[in-house]
Design a protein around this nucleic acid. Structure first.
Length: 226
DNA sequence: CAGATCACCTGCTTGC
DNA sequence: TGCAAGCAGGTGATCT
């Protein structure tokens, strides 16, 4: 094993021998690093063994939406799974953000989920980001004023850094490499909180379906267009 | 071309 | 208790 890193939602494992593995966890995938002698359950579909350690890396996925790709390391950079991704959300400067926002159309919630726009934002964090920015999820990107674009730009790394600090969001299946739950579910402001009180203003959180995904928002803190 | 719908697959929760 | 319906963190295909 030569290196482990990430690009967007793709987890990349570089192996000796010039080979690289890509993992995508999709909805219920898990990568667990545990002892070889620990029992494997029926949802464990793939295992990587290592020299010099009694532990192994297991890919577990109840719904089987996830995928694993084996490719030559020298071809990994140009693989479509990586090449088609937008920039990383952490460390994206404001001019660059304005640049990639330019000429985009459609609802802002859908754009945040578009991995070709920015890589790595999923449904939970998109909703939390829009709440933080005070933007209604169905707003057409085209209509966002400069001030809103700036709020959005600031909210993205803020929410993601906070979620990372709390080691992710374990509503159901998410576990870290040690099989431990994250803690960010305790800090969610809108996601999964339909009809509960907005932590900021007390109004009842609403749910909309946008692009086939549930979208939670506060009807008072996140007004349409304006 | 934005948006809706469906498909992939399994399991959990809710309501009758 | 049983059973059907609805829901789920992602994303790509297809149709309007």
């Amino acid at each position: 094993m030569l290196g482990l890193n990430r690009r967007g939602k793709i987890i990349r494992l570089d192996l000796s021998g010039g080979l690289t593995l890509f993992f995508h966890l999709k909805m219920t995938g898990q990568l667990l690093f545990c002892r070889r002698d620990a029992p494997r359950d029926k949802h464990t579909h793939f295992v990587v063994s290592f020299e010099n350690t009694p532990k192994e890396l297991r890919f577990r996925d109840v719904r089987k939406f996830g995928f694993i790709l084996l490719l030559k390391t020298r071809e990994a950079e140009r693989a479509a799974e990586i090449r088609n991704l937008g920039p990383e959300p952490l460390g994206l400067d404001f001019p660059s953000f304005l640049g990639i926002l330019q000429s985009r159309r459609g609802r802002v919630k859908s754009l945040l989920l578009n991995q070709g726009f920015i890589a790595g934002i999923g449904n939970i964090y998109a909703d939390e980001i829009l709440f933080e920015a005070g933007i209604h999820p169905a707003t057409d990107v085209f209509l966002l004023r400069l001030k809103d674009r700036e709020k959005l730009w600031k909210a993205i790394p803020l929410i993601l850094a906070r979620a990372i600090k709390n080691r992710g969001t374990s509503i159901r299946d998410f576990r870290d490499g040690d099989g431990l739950e994250g803690g960010f579910q305790d800090f969610l402001c809108v996601y999964g909180r339909e009809s509960l009180a907005c932590p900021r203003c007390g109004a009842a959180i609403k749910r909309l379906r946008i692009g086939g995904r549930s979208s939670f928002f506060c009807p008072r803190c996140q007004r349409r267009s304006s």
